[in-house]
Amino acid sequence: MNISEDIIKEMSKFGLTRYESQAYLVLLIKGVCSSKEVIESVGIPQPRIYDTMMGLERKGFIEIKEGRPRKFRAIDPETVFKKIQEDQELIVKQLQNLYKKEYVYYESPVWTVYGSQNMINKIRQMIRETEYELLLAVPEELIGKIKGDLKKAEERNVFISTVLYNHAKTYPDLRNVWIFDREVPAMIIVLKDRDQGFACPYKFLKGEGRVIDERYGILIENKELLHILSDFFLNTIWKTSRRILEELDVRSKSFVHIAIAIHEYKKLEKEGYNVRAKVMGKRTGDNMPIEIEGNIKGVEESSIIHRIVIETKDKQITVGGWDSTKEDIEMEIITLYPTKDDRL
């Protein structure tokens, strides 16, 4: 019997095997048949005929009349496919109910980096990808492994401030990089712009550069945790370290931490520079993005407040740092433009 391949393919969409489709079509055309007649019509192998007919009966396509021989009859296609449609509608309804449920998925805010070399590779990657500001607190042993990356970051005009632990004897030969020394080591920290932070135990490196491979570090990309790590770096490590090298750099620089920007502004002001600034951030009142440009007229700094006052063409605007509420703008990036022009 010649049966259209297109029909067989279409019927497979309803869960029928090729043999089941062939057998059902035979019964539609010939009416009541025995298994032998089905085999003779479409060539279904004898060992497969029982499973084929039982499958059709189980799926609701045929009826079986017991006897010798057993007889099979096709159920009206309209009845069959109406039942299939009802079943499909029921399944869709059940799935839709699942789809409408609001599941909350929590993605870990912290990634773990295992192995000394992987940690060094991650630090180097962060340095290479830094766009504005790079803050580090590292042992002297690590500098040799990342010096080339620091040099390239410096050439990209990235601001770099490095705290070296435990009375470092050598310092990276880099221009325009702030270098501090801290007698008591804390954890190793690398802060890339305002989007990534890395931290691991100080004993990540030990002795003559011997690396302890069982150590691991954490990579943070969550804003709230980055804020905590940044505060720890600035208030516990950076502000308690001794300045070794802090040359005046009169190129324009961009900063993401307001405490660092204020520190740079004070240096420039002390040397007689006026400073113009461009700020990108958001208004604290409604969180809408904003960009302003003007002259810095003053700063306010304490253990809990960091504020810059900028005079634009028509008014003075206060700029704060991370999660500011009292200032007009929460700063995300500030660029300082030093000048000796007294007209500012």
Score class of each variant (00 low, 15 high):
Val190Asp: 08
Val190Tyr: 04
Leu191Ala: 12
Leu191Gln: 14
Lys192Thr: 03
Lys192Phe: 03
Asp193Phe: 11
Arg194Asp: 06
Gly197Tyr: 12
Phe198Cys: 11
Phe198Met: 08
Ala199Val: 13
Cys200Phe: 10
Cys200Trp: 14
Pro201Met: 01
Pro201Ala: 00
Pro201Asp: 03
Pro201Ile: 00
Tyr202Gly: 06
Tyr202Met: 12
Lys203Gln: 05
Phe204Lys: 08
Leu205His: 09
Lys206Pro: 11
Lys206Phe: 13
Gly207Tyr: 10
Arg210Pro: 15
Val211Gly: 02
Val211Ala: 05
Arg215Ile: 14
Gly217Ile: 10
Gly217Val: 04
Leu219Met: 14
Leu219Lys: 08
Leu219Ser: 06
Glu221Asn: 09
Glu221Ile: 15
Lys223Tyr: 06
Glu224Val: 05
Leu225Tyr: 11
Leu225Ser: 12
Leu226Gly: 02
His227Trp: 11
His227Val: 03
Ile228Thr: 07
Ile228Ala: 02
Ser230Lys: 09
Ser230Asp: 10
Asp231Ile: 01
Asp231Glu: 11
Phe232His: 10
Phe233Lys: 00
Asn235Gln: 02
Asn235Pro: 01
Thr236Gln: 07
Thr236Gly: 04
Thr236Cys: 12
Ile237Thr: 02
Trp238Phe: 13
Ser241Ile: 03
Arg242Met: 09
Arg242Gly: 13
Arg242Pro: 13
Ile244Arg: 07
Ile244Gly: 07
Ile244Leu: 02
Ile244Met: 10
Leu245Asp: 04
Leu245Pro: 14
Leu245His: 06
Leu245Trp: 02
Leu245Gln: 15
Glu246Thr: 13
Glu246Phe: 13
Leu248Met: 03
Leu248Ala: 12
Val250Glu: 12
Val250Lys: 15
Val250Tyr: 13
Arg251His: 01
Arg251Ser: 09
Arg251Val: 07
Ser252Asn: 15
Ser252Trp: 01
Ser252His: 01
